[in-house]
Design a protein around this nucleic acid. Sequence first.
DNA 1: TCAAAAGTGAGAATCGGATTCTCGCCAGAG
DNA 2: CTCTGGCGAGAATCCGATTCTCACTTTTGA
Lengths: 217, 217
Amino acid sequence: MTATEEDPAWKQRAVERSTKAAKQRAEQRVDRFLDAAQKIIGAKGSTDFTVQEIVEESRQSLRSFYQHFDGKHDLLLALFEDALLQAAGQIRATAALTADPLERLGVAVRLLFEISRPDPSAQRPLFTDFAPRLLFSHPDKVQSAHAPLLELFTELMGQVEAAGRLRPGLRPRRAAALAMQTAMFIAQSSGPPEDDDPHTLTATEVWEFCALGVTGR
Amino acid sequence: MTATEEDPAWKQRAVERSTKAAKQRAEQRVDRFLDAAQKIIGAKGSTDFTVQEIVEESRQSLRSFYQHFDGKHDLLLALFEDALLQAAGQIRATAALTADPLERLGVAVRLLFEISRPDPSAQRPLFTDFAPRLLFSHPDKVQSAHAPLLELFTELMGQVEAAGRLRPGLRPRRAAALAMQTAMFIAQSSGPPEDDDPHTLTATEVWEFCALGVTGR
DNA sequence: TCAAAAGTGAGAATCGGATTCTCGCCAGAG
DNA sequence: CTCTGGCGAGAATCCGATTCTCACTTTTGA
């Protein structure tokens, strides 16, 4: 089954060629599982589903599920990564509409904050719900799932720096990590949007805080 | 068992007297469970224990465990609250040694950051490990467990305000929430202290960030 | 084109852990 | 002294994830 280590490159390539089709089929099945999960999450508004449910919704089998995923956590991780990727895309697109670099960063931070807060009514899967569980089981993976977002914020921060608005001595990547994590985590611990409890922090407050921390005024 | 509503006060007092002993016995048992949990956590350096283990370590019984706790989550919650309470105490004591209000706040923020990061070698249970799981199962309880810390930071922030160093328009309680959550959550997602990966944020960086966000320079 | 190999569905079996339940036993309250 | 509630021991139950079995298709490779 596994004899890859000593095989010469040409053989590996041959195998790869003849494997491509199978790979595609597999991906298609994986997607069906992923879609089913999305659907269920959307339907019940919670990320607390059972592997059985996924299997039934996707009209496949447990057998097949474990053929394609390492386990439930693996499925969660896939959803999580995907959600962050989409979020990054959405934020990037929205931010691009603003010309001023600092204000553009502000748009991004506020949007990230809004996206990250647990909102039962959002159809976008509450992707922050995954974080806690994954943070426990696979902290390293979570880290890498954050990569696209960190990338985006680093870019934005770089533009702020280019405009001479970044606090001296602060590297864009660090600033990006600070702002991003602040927005995401504070959002998580604050209540849902409609909650007008005066203790709840708002997107604007968080942004003001970050802005000062980033620009030094 | 519960007939408190219509009973006259004298009877309640009588009952209370005869109940006090039992209550103390119960508390002692609860403590034994808590201590056992602490010990196990310290021993295996992980918060991933089994109710059975607790029962065995404490030389009590499952029967008794569920007599005193609502379930495992209840035990975790108790540990969590206790850890935060102790942390608040430690931070308060340490901060008190510094005279300047702003610098005092800085001491507190940096210390909170250090305490909050996942350090396998700390004997004080990695209390932030609980947060994720609890945040999922009982977000409201987590909120209230944070209370003592929020209290402390609000005090410190009030002193900063009294010294005229607080950014105008920022209420001490909000500022406290921002700084506190920033320190705690960023600590969680950054690696352990000895990890000298250049991507890892440091206590000082976090404090500088907070300081600017709080004072507005 | 054919036979071995790999993938799949259906669903039973296993496993790990939390939570409950069943028996007695024992100490303290009356 | 008796009665009641708390307790230890440990079996029983529950829930979900993960594995395994079996019969059947499809894909692959000579």
